[in-house]
Design a protein around this nucleic acid. Sequence first.
DNA 1: CGCCTTTGACCAGCGC
DNA 2: GCGCTGGTCAAAGGCG
Length: 501
Amino acid sequence: MEGAILKTIASAGGAITDDKRRPNESVGCRGEEEEEQEECSKQVLKEDEEVESAKAEMTVVREENVRLKMLLNKIEKDYKSLQMRFTHIFHPEPKTTIEEPDELVSLSLGIRTPIDHQSAAKINKSDSSSISKSKVEDDDDEHLKLGLNYDSEEAAKLPADLNANQSPENSLTETKEEELAGGETWPPGGNKVNLKTTRSVSGDDDLSQANVKRARVSVRARCETATMNDGCQWRKYGQKIAKGNPCPRAYYRCTVAPTCPVRKQVQRCAEDTSILITTYEGTHNHSLPVSARAMASTTSAAASALLSGSSSTSQSATTTFHGLNLSDNSKTRPFYLPNSTSLPFPTITLDLTASTPTTTTTSDHFNVFSSRFPSTNLSFSPSQTNILPTVWSNGNLNYGAVLPYNKTTVGHLYQPNLPKNLYQLQNSQQVLTETLTKAITSDPSFRAVIAAALSMVGGESASSGPAQASSTAESVGKHLKWDGQTKIVPSNPLTSNGKGI
DNA sequence: CGCCTTTGACCAGCGC
DNA sequence: GCGCTGGTCAAAGGCG
């Protein structure tokens, strides 16, 4: 049946479009034959060209792959360099910075395991590194993943003390909490117990310790959604109307791990409701999805920098910051920074809202922060590619600021009419600022981390929607390789009901 | 049914 | 001591 049909078609002459048969067919006149041959040769050439182009494309893709691999290697190297930098910054010469056992705990960044005071007291101050190493080596794997939440094999290959030193907030925030809780989940009012305990033990020093342990990282970003999609799972456990801000403040708790101590407060800026102020507290004690690492790393790094500054100026921080009320700033403060007036916790603020060129002065309401503790403000301008820090005396560190470094902005540092304690504060803040500057400017990895956060937040703010916001994180997750395997994160790593954070 | 949000109540710290 | 405020708890209800 089919054969008959084919014969019929073939006899029709030229109806068959099989190109390969045409050169051998003797149909039509000689001129048509030449045309067909020419046409066939053209098509063959075209196919060859396509093959060649495909090969060239494959070559390009291969080269791109090689470049990406090199980029990944570079990122990993940068990360290791960043770790070294943090270790270097946060663990200066012990004799010059560590003055008491508690201070040792404060400076032992990232010690995830609870270290009781007895054992800590037995250990020599100068052996802080060995403390970290021995404790971490005894710890389980999860604790090795702490800190900057980078749990690649490269990180695992690093010395244990490096891993242990990644996360200041782990050691600072959770050590005593886990002591109190016996390693279990947070007891009701754990923070209260913590604060109350530390305050009742030995007065101001412990108070300052508690303050340092409660370091917070506040992120200001333009976001239309209820919360920033930082990749983590959060559970809302409370909401309050804070004084002076009609927008309610929501309290969230990380639910990725039941024992995770991380909490965050979300509140819209009263001045500009498109600005979302998210304040993070604590460090995740579990591995994070790729999409959550950027923010976690950023906040952890920022908190580390802040705590480093606080630690290095702990003396003045205790004696000066508590006694000094930055009433000038707080009175003129045109927006409401979470906890800035009521809590003595050091807060570092990452200002990701300065996406448009603005005239930045010390009175710029996006860049003036005040609290009883020296809040440190990092203002980023994502549109700027040349990152040059502008530092002024109030601890603000304007990244990519529109204004060039202008000494007039720091002029009041040298004003002779300032009270002595204000000078102390400014000196402390200057040290803090220098520490931050050192951490950020001297290591490209820090900038990479910040850039990752910027890309995430910027994408979200630009898209004004959670789905699109997550696409940025998704692309990061899809294109980054960790632990030698590609981890595909969900397009929207939200909660099961899709409401997310 | 499990997880989440909502929301009023409770507690602690702080200032007057 | 009292009131204000921030932070947290926990019961109730909603949602998938």
